[in-house]
């Protein structure tokens, strides 16, 4: 099954509503304006999109994972390449730039940032889907291959057809752009239903 442009646009919009809210929360938390955009969204079957992992695979170092169950089930992941993760942590904690490691404090901050962003995004989706969700506590995962994290979730529900939503998440802090990757593993039927509902509403 393929998604047409309208559907992709709608999905992009939904996710951006979520990250927009998250950016507001982050700015409040840090006391400095943080902007967050998700410019391009791709959606498809895991197998079809596996090629794109090759690009990010080796460089992903830190990923925040939150699972959700209830009316909608799936996994939300915010992943940072090593340098971006370190840079984002430094900017938020105002550390000097000599630090090169994803140390205890920086990974803690990334975890909280991921927590806020993922809650925003998933919250936005669940609102539209009208689903009541329960979430897992966010979990920071270091040095794992991102496709394994995705695969683990997919294999947990072998009977359900699942789609992967992949998006570039661009943080702008202190006039610096920092790129991360946002990944959502979602029930394919749910996505379609949700998009139909949304598009129907606006049609």
């Amino acid at each position: 099954m393929n998604f047409n442009d309208n559907q992709i646009d709608a999905l992009t919009e939904i996710i951006n509503i979520g990250v927009g809210r998250a950016a507001g929360s982050l700015s409040d938390l840090i006391g400095e304006r943080i902007e967050l955009h998700v410019p391009v969204v791709r959606v498809g079957k895991f197998e079809d999109m596996a090629a794109q992992f090759i690009v990010v695979d080796d460089t992903i170092e830190a990923a925040v994972i939150q699972d959700f169950r209830g009316g909608l089930q799936g996994r939300a992941i915010l992943a940072f390449p090593h340098e971006s993760g370190v840079k984002l942590g430094q900017l938020i904690l105002k550390l000097d730039s000599g630090e090169a490691e994803l140390s205890e404090d920086i990974s803690g901050v990334l975890e909280e940032v991921g927590n806020i962003v993922l809650n925003g995004v998933v919250g936005s989706i669940s609102n539209l889907a009208g689903a009541e969700l329960s979430y897992s506590v966010p979990k920071l995962c270091m040095g794992q291959r991102i496709e394994k994290i995705v695969e683990a979730e997919i294999s947990r529900h072998p009977t359900v057809e699942q789609y992967l939503v992949m998006a570039d998440a661009r943080f702008c802090v202190s006039q610096r752009d920092i790129d991360g990757s946002l990944l959502l593993v979602l029930d394919a039927l749910m996505i379609k239903a949700m998009l139909s509902a949304v598009l129907g509403q606006y049609a």
Binding site: L29, E104, G108
Partner: peptide, 19 residues
């Protein structure tokens, strides 16, 4: 604020030690 936010979102949240 962060506490309120988390309660409001009715989803779990973490407060990092560094922040």
């Amino acid at each position: 604020n962060r506490f309120n936010q988390i309660v409001e979102s009715r989803s779990p949240g973490v407060l990092s030690a560094a922040l």
